[in-house]
């Protein structure tokens, strides 16, 4: 009995936290808080993925979204001095138009969902995944696809990223004149004679 209840409980816990955090992202007044709520939303949706048995996607969610994207957002929000209060001022003015657009979207989604025809083979496809679930984990299956079947594309993507990196550096990096940098070698080669001067200071006169 407990074995059945626990996943359901976990599901409701994670989904409640996800929905509440997502709501807080939108309504939090401080953008930094919004980003922190966003991280909470990512985290609990990773939990939902684990419940689905998609542990690889869950880890990606944590590593990529929480580890990189959210931190990047945080930096952008903190560095760009955007006046969010000013951004919100037109809220009531744009509300009717925004609500109208939202209504159109909802109607369209309803139309799509209403007329959606699920292909008859879908249920058999879902029941018989290739490769079979008992034979491999989904991490291994993804690894097979990315590093075996699509090894060529994977390497090509690596080359593209390398070119992007070289390009970003070569188009923006410039060596500035007059920047004081620490030179360890120069520091080590300093001798006491050239670095220290002994001055006999008379009382009340100081050094001139």
């Amino acid at each position: 009995m407990a074995a059945d209840v626990l996943p359901v409980l976990a599901f409701y816990l994670f989904s409640t936290i996800t929905v509440i955090s997502a709501l807080m992202v939108v309504i939090a007044s401080n953008p930094v808080r919004s980003v922190l709520w966003l991280i909470a939303a990512f985290f609990s949706s990773a939990g939902l993925f684990v419940l689905l048995g998609a542990e690889f996607v869950a880890m990606l969610m944590l590593i990529v979204y929480v580890g990189a994207v959210a931190v990047l957002f945080l930096f952008v929000v903190m560095m760009l001095d955007v006046d969010f209060v000013a951004l919100r001022q037109g809220m009531s003015e744009y509300l009717p138009l925004g609500a109208f657009v939202a209504l159109i979207l909802i109607v369209e989604i309803a139309l799509v969902v209403g007329f959606w025809v699920v292909s008859p083979q879908v249920s058999t496809l879902i029941d018989n995944p290739a490769p079979a679930i008992t034979q491999t984990t989904n991490t291994a299956a993804l690894g097979n696809i990315i590093y075996d079947d699509y090894a060529y594309l994977f390497q090509a993507a690596g080359l593209i990223l390398l070119v992007a990196m070289i390009g970003a550096i070569v188009l923006t990096l410039r060596t500035r004149e007059g920047v004081k940098k620490q030179s360890v070698v120069a520091q080590m080669h300093r001798t006491r004679e050239e670095a220290v001067a002994l001055v006999d200071v008379k009382p009340g006169q100081g050094i001139n």
Partner: peptide, 23 residues
């Protein structure tokens, strides 16, 4: 189509960079 697109992007991205090379 996939390998075609990868090759195309590698070529295009490199060409964008050298077009702007005299920065």
């Amino acid at each position: 189509l996939l390998s075609l697109y990868m090759g195309l992007e590698l070529q295009s991205l490199s060409l964008y960079i050298i077009a702007a090379f005299r920065r």
